[in-house]
Amino acid sequence: MNQQQIRNFSIIAHIDHGKSTLADRLLEATGALSDREKSDQYLDKMELEQERGITIKAQAVRLNYTAKDGQTYILNLIDTPGHVDFSYEVSRSLSACEGAMLVVDAAQGVEAQTLANVYMALDQDLEIFPVLNKIDLPSAEPERVKQEVEEIIGIDTSDAIEASAKDGLGIEDILETVVARVPPPEGDRSAPLKALTFDSWYDSYQGVIMLVRVIDGVMKKGDKVKLMATGGVYEIQKVGAFSPHPLTLPELAAGEVGFVIAGIKVVEDAKVGDTITHLHA
């Protein structure tokens, strides 16, 4: 996998500003969802979320996108929670990215929670580009909201994308902007393994599933790994990516984002924010 073709980005938005619908449109536009699967809020997998309409789990989805330059890119969309209660998860998710799309409701404008997450992204030196969503609403005021974003957040909005997730407007512009503005990941695949766990959950069939961003090195099935925070040692049973269905891969290398299954029985042993390294005999 050529690192120059990888883009790792997240979506920052206040709750109800249309983030999940926008994420679904990106999945559809890149052919990741079939017509039958175009259920609202596909990324919000957990049942609890469906009830509350809130994104809780940071799902990482791998999208293949052939850009206007004729090259095919791997876009890793790391969905972050928009709710104030989940700020630690947001910070871990952002640390797996190089860029972030700031989604602001074209009618409602900038909200306090948006600010907290944007400052986190700025702290992590992410490339941030603004998207005004819900541009189709009669109450949309794109010029006023652009001015708000510039004055309150300090981000240039001269090339802000005007979009409507509901109507599918601006989706291709978003994908092209991700390719053009989000830098490719750095990292050395020949260096010792270092991977960041930014999410983990328990699956009754597979045990604990960890979402990771590989910083350096390569991880693959059969590798013995150590989780630094807990000191636990495990053997990797499977690595892969969600695209959005689980796809088993031969390896995950520097710059890539995906899942790791390693026979971990309890989710507390796979702490969010933990570092995974190879066990050296």
Rank of each mutant, 00 (worst) to 15 (best):
Q113G: 11
R52T: 07
L175S: 13
G273D: 12
I6W: 03
I15L: 05
P185C: 08
L33G: 14
I135F: 15
A100L: 02
S190Q: 13
P130T: 10
A229F: 06
G31I: 14
V145H: 06
D216C: 12
A116Q: 07
A96K: 02
A67P: 05
D44R: 06
K271C: 04
K38H: 06
D16L: 00
Y65W: 08
M46H: 11
P184N: 09
T30N: 08
L227I: 15
E176I: 05
L196G: 01
Q4C: 03
E251P: 08
P130N: 12
E186H: 12
A241P: 00
L75D: 04
K45M: 08
Y119E: 11
D35N: 14
G31D: 13
M1P: 10
K57H: 10
E49M: 03
E143H: 10
L175P: 12
P138G: 03
R36V: 08
V131Y: 08
R7I: 10
I11H: 01
A107R: 07
D216G: 01
A13D: 00
N64G: 06
E235S: 06
N117M: 07
E51P: 07
D274L: 03
M1K: 08
E49I: 02
A58K: 07
L227C: 05
Y205W: 03
A116I: 12
L22Q: 02
M219N: 03
G232M: 09
E172G: 10
L193G: 04
V84W: 01
R36T: 13
Q108V: 01
M1E: 11
H14M: 05
A106T: 09
Y73S: 08
D125L: 04
P184D: 03
G222Q: 02
G154D: 08
G18M: 12
I15R: 09
P130E: 09
K265H: 12
P81I: 01
D167Y: 05
G154C: 00
E172N: 15
V272T: 14
V266S: 13
Q4V: 09
E176Q: 09
Y202S: 09
I12F: 03
H17P: 06
E268A: 12
Y234Q: 05
S204Y: 05
G187N: 07
I15M: 07
K194V: 11
A241D: 00
D159E: 14
D167S: 06
M210S: 14
